[in-house]
């Protein structure tokens, strides 16, 4: 797993992809920080993160589209699968590499919080819960992205299908508003973005934690299964 993790992480920087991701992510967070905090003189990062949740879906698939699709295209999956490592550790190695990129990028955004701390009062509970919630949400997005990448050998198809799913989930709350009763509750329950609202209020709700982690694990499990199943077709 470590070998795969290291190679994947390094390959983000030996191609343009890692730099493009970091540039776009940091530009995006910079603009949002300016709009929400600097220009209004607001110390809370709540709105900053709420907006980021809907925008992040456009940059995160960049990290996952390559993960499995490229290996199939280059036939390097033959090297990985015939090596004495399990499919599970291949999938985890790749997932953690993408996760590390996100954590790295998020760590940079902590500068904004430090800037706020100089000029105002930071609500630490809210800030930390926003960070945890957002990181968990990214975990879900990355695992869905990994799954879509495992389904195809085209990176573009992987990216676009991930966008399609993510855009749908971002609007799931709005779609839910059109219904009422049970359907509405089910749709809201399913929506990863709506789950995030608790974190934004500084509440670490165990059910939301469990929801995000299980959803991440579920899609990683699907990813392993897609790869295993292909060996039998």
């Amino acid at each position: 797993m470590k070998a795969i993790f290291k190679r994947e992480l390094r390959s983000y920087f030996s191609s343009m992809l890692g730099y493009i991701f970091l540039t776009m992510f940091l530009a995006l967070t910079g603009i949002l920080f300016w709009l929400n905090n600097i220009s209004f003189g607001v110390a809370s990062v709540k709105n900053f993160f709420s907006l980021l949740t809907s925008w992040a879906v456009f940059v995160l698939p960049m990290l996952t589209m390559r993960l499995f699709a490229e290996d199939r295209k280059l036939k390097t999956d033959q090297l990985l699968i015939t090596a004495p490592v399990s499919v599970r550790s291949i999938v985890l190695g790749k997932f953690f590499a993408a996760g590390t990129m996100v954590i790295g990028a998020l760590a940079v955004t902590f500068i904004y919080v430090i800037v706020i701390a100089f000029y105002g009062d930071v609500n630490w509970a809210e800030t930390i819960s926003c960070y945890i919630g957002f990181a968990l949400l990214c975990g879900v997005v990355l695992s869905i992205g990994s799954f879509m990448s495992a389904l195809t050998e085209s990176q573009i198809v992987a990216a676009i299908s991930t966008y399609a799913i993510l855009i749908f989930t971002v609007f799931l709350g709005n779609i839910a508003a059109a219904f009422n009763g049970v359907i509405q509750s089910v749709l809201l329950w399913l929506s990863p973005v709506d789950r995030y609202l608790d974190f934004a209020m500084g509440i670490l709700d165990p059910s939301a934690l469990v929801y995000y982690i299980s959803l991440t694990l579920l899609f990683l499990f699907f990813t392993v299964n897609v790869i295993e199943r292909r060996r039998f077709s």
Binding site: A3, I4, S14, L74, K75, T76, L79, A83
Partner: peptide
């Protein structure tokens, strides 16, 4: 195993690639 099409990562150097395979195995 050497498959029909060698499973190579074009962006790596030969040393990096072999070192990755060493770690993998």
């Amino acid at each position: 195993y050497l498959p029909e099409q060698p499973p190579l990562y074009p962006e790596m150097t030969v040393r990096e690639y072999l070192s990755f395979v060493c770690e993998l195995k």
